Computed example of a mutant assay.
Amino acid sequence: MSEHPVQKSHRTPGRAAASNPDIRFDRFTAETVDDGWARDEELPVLRTEVRDETARKVITSNSSPDLSFDRSINPYRGCEHGCIYCFARPSHAYLGLSPGLDFETRLIARPNAAEQLRKELSNPRYQPKTIAIGTNTDPYQPIEKERKIMRAVLEVLRDFNHPVAIVTKGTLIARDVDILAPMAAQGLVRVGVSVTTLDNAVSRAMEPRVPSPAARLRVIRQLTDAGIPVRAMVSPVIPALTDHEMEALLQACAEAGAVAASSIVLRLPREVADLFREWVAEHFPDRATRIMGRVREMHGGQDYDPHFGQRMTGQGEWAAILRQRFRLATRKLGLDRSLPQLRTDLFARPPQPGDQMSFL
């Protein structure tokens, strides 16, 4: 550890992470330190950079017993929403980028995702099952407004009558109601909207570029009014910071039209633990020790327990109390149900250029 304070090279307004942790796959590390020669000029603002990636495969498979889906799509890598607690941050290290500020500011767009998806769904060996989108990074983060990659992906799924489950914090999803509503009428769509807190100040600090809690409640109403089933995702629950809001959050989501709910406790894999600890010490110094103590209590004395069956729900007395509160509240509000399975029997490959016409 250097004896000098770290020298910042940029100002970072609207960012949750305060630093760029080393990339765990790099052989060497570097640190810029303040050598005492103060600079007179004002530091530049750290801006978002986006570069394109040509996707050679767009449907990703998984076999996790903790997940309800076995395939997913990520139109983007990295996420400008910048949620400090995001479990997807460590995935940026595989790109040679840091899970810290790089994850929020150095984004990868996959402009050919829809074209590649059409090819993969057209494969005669492909068997349809629900595709999840938004389970890693948010498909409706700010750059989607201009890039429209998610919309293009939805157009392909619509053309194939393919089921899709979407998770988002972004209100931009309302733009695509014209696609989603007809698909929902066929049993091909469900949406999960994540609402972590009703406190604007807490939300702005921990998820700085996410629409406000009130805006997310409004988009739940917009979707449900269009006939699109919405699950309220009260996730993650942060002990000693947002856990006291659970019942109020669920009630607000139910009043907005949500028909089901889910909840996951805070989990801090790999670099996320240090980033979160750094963040909570800066923004909530009066309760930082208590928050991290509760986190470790729910994860077997560690910042994170990666074991299947426990990493999402936590363990111990505190986690059990949260689960009981969630069950009671969802039962009272009528949110204690699972959404019906999406249909796969409607899947059909649309005619392709060069296909022989049927005489039937």
Score class of each variant (00 low, 15 high):
His81Phe: 08
Arg204Leu: 05
Ala38Cys: 09
Val50Leu: 10
Ser64Pro: 08
Leu346Ala: 10
Ile173Lys: 08
Ser68Glu: 14
Arg204Asp: 04
Met233Thr: 03
Asp336Cys: 01
Pro285Thr: 01
Thr60His: 15
Glu317Ile: 10
Thr29Asn: 10
Asp286Ile: 11
Ala248Lys: 10
Met246Glu: 00
Gly227Cys: 02
Phe276Ile: 09
Gly334Lys: 03
Pro340Cys: 13
Met206Gln: 04
Ser9Met: 13
Ala132Gly: 10
Glu155Arg: 14
Glu245Tyr: 00
Phe276Leu: 02
Arg158Tyr: 08
Ile133Lys: 07
Gly257Asp: 01
Val265Tyr: 03
Gln341Pro: 15
Pro351Thr: 07
Thr60Phe: 15
Tyr76Arg: 09
Pro236Val: 00
Glu104Gln: 07
Gln324Glu: 12
Asn161Thr: 09
Asp26Thr: 08
Val6Gly: 02
Ser63Lys: 14
Glu271Gln: 12
Pro353Tyr: 04
Asp176Val: 01
Leu67Met: 13
Ala319Phe: 08
Thr12Met: 02
Ala201His: 11
Ile179Gly: 05
Asp34Gln: 02
Met246Val: 01
Val295Ile: 09
Val210Pro: 04
Ala240Met: 08
His81Gly: 07
Ala329Tyr: 03
Gln324Met: 05
Val193Gly: 05
Gly134Val: 08
Val230Ala: 07
Arg270Gln: 14
Asp66Met: 08
Pro111His: 00
Asp274Phe: 11
Pro128Ala: 13
Ala288Phe: 02
Val156Asn: 00
Arg175Ser: 11
Pro229Cys: 04
Leu223Ser: 06
Asp274Gln: 15
Ser64Lys: 08
Pro128Met: 12
Gln310Asp: 15
Ala113Lys: 12
Met292Glu: 06
Thr344Arg: 11
Asp22Thr: 11
Lys119His: 13
Ser72Asn: 15
Val6Trp: 06
Val280Cys: 04
Pro211Ile: 04
Gly192Ile: 02
Asn161Val: 06
Asp345Leu: 05
Phe347Gln: 07
Arg290His: 02
Arg106Val: 07
Pro13Trp: 03
Met150Arg: 00
Arg147Glu: 13
Pro229Phe: 03
Val164Gln: 07
Pro269Leu: 06
Ser72Val: 14
Trp318Thr: 14
Arg190Leu: 13
Leu107Gln: 02
Thr242Glu: 06
Ala181Trp: 05
Ala281Asp: 01
Gly192Leu: 09
Ile84Phe: 01
Asp52Gln: 14
Asp35Thr: 15
Ala252Ile: 00
Ser122Ile: 03
Ser98Leu: 02
Glu80Trp: 05
Leu97Ser: 10
Leu97Gln: 12
Pro75Val: 02
Pro5Thr: 03
Ala17Arg: 07
Arg323Met: 09
Leu46His: 00
Thr313Lys: 14
Pro306Thr: 06
Ser64Thr: 08
